[in-house]
Amino acid sequence: MTVRVVVTFVPKKATANVEWGLRKQIWGIPERHGPVVEAPFEWLVICSEVNGLPHGPRAHADLWRDRASLTLHIARRDSGVVTEGLLPLWPDELESGEVRYTHRFAISSFAEVAQIAAAELPEDLLQAVSIAHAKPRYLELADDDLLRLLEYAGWDATELPSVPLGQDAIPSVPQRASGGQGFTSDPRKRKAVELHAEDMAIDYLERVEGWTDAVRVGKPYDLKFTRDGAEKRVEVKGTTGAGSSIFLTVKEVEHARGNETGQPIDLVVVSGIELARSDDGGYVASGGRLAHYRNYLPADEELRPKQFEADLTTAPDSVVHVGSW
């Protein structure tokens, strides 16, 4: 099976647009390249950094294969393409006061593949990336190849998530268009978001709710508090997105539905967290909106499976065992 992909290249002078677009979860293409995204596509691959090419990206594919290493951002397209009623959004648009990216759509950021050798890319993707500096490229990529790229970045699912393209429009003002928690493969980003969300949850539950003695547990829930001999367990989720959906592990769901204390857990979601680079090259998280779900019980209709564990109970006479070779 294949997935439909648009590959685009961002020059160094516009790399601030990449960080802004991934954080706000919206992407745009200039009008002259609009026909590329008018074709049906499901995934976006952004090439934001290339090293090893002595004269820049205008090099033959063989030179890319032999010498280049590059950073790719993989995002899922989450809406239709909007071309009307637009305002300047990206840093270079705001600086110039004009709309430069006239074909816009919502995205969910799934992974950053940092400085992968170009030779490790699937051949058709390498060809598209090597000429994307001139024009975004559309291609049909084997879904296994896209999964391998996501796995390279640390994504551990066994199948690609569905692509929700039913949304007809996206906002033209600066706000996040995707409602989900999103995914980032950079452990520094994940840790910064996670700790900031926990810090906000501790401050809120101690200062506003009156709980004390916060303990960071980690698994199968994040925080434990006490008050007048009672115990409160809290699951915390942090996201740079809108926080209308979150990721839960099987253990987290099981613990919320029943644990040895017999007490329900609370869920705290901190959404809209901002990330900035720190002086040491890491990330600093700030801001966010806190939502407190008391006695949280995940209902079946609210849960969507991302992958399945299959017990192999096939009748023995229908299985061929070939051993090793």
Rank of each mutant, 00 (worst) to 15 (best):
V269Q: 02
R176G: 11
I273D: 00
A106D: 08
D222K: 03
E98N: 11
A117K: 14
E301G: 00
A153W: 05
I202Q: 09
G241I: 03
F308W: 13
K251V: 00
K306L: 14
D222V: 03
A214K: 03
L121Q: 02
I170F: 05
I29W: 07
H133G: 09
A299G: 11
G80K: 03
H60C: 09
E194K: 11
S271E: 09
H33R: 11
V193G: 02
E194W: 06
F105S: 07
T226P: 01
K189D: 03
A201R: 01
P35H: 06
K189C: 03
N51Q: 14
L290F: 01
A291T: 14
D62A: 15
I46S: 08
E151R: 15
V81R: 07
I29H: 06
Q25V: 05
R65E: 12
D78K: 09
I265C: 00
V322N: 13
G85N: 11
R188F: 12
A291D: 09
T83D: 11
R148T: 04
F105D: 07
V82A: 13
E254S: 10
V193K: 01
L275A: 08
P305Y: 08
F9N: 13
E309K: 11
G179H: 08
T261V: 00
A142M: 06
G34M: 13
W43G: 05
G154R: 04
G28D: 09
V129A: 06
L63Y: 07
E254D: 12
D222L: 02
T71S: 15
S318E: 15
L248V: 01
Q127W: 07
E93S: 12
L89N: 03
V113W: 00
D144F: 04
E93G: 10
D203F: 11
E235D: 12
G210A: 07
P122R: 10
C47N: 13
R104N: 10
L312W: 15
E84T: 15
L94H: 07
G182M: 01
S69P: 01
G288M: 05
V250P: 00
R4L: 09
G258F: 03
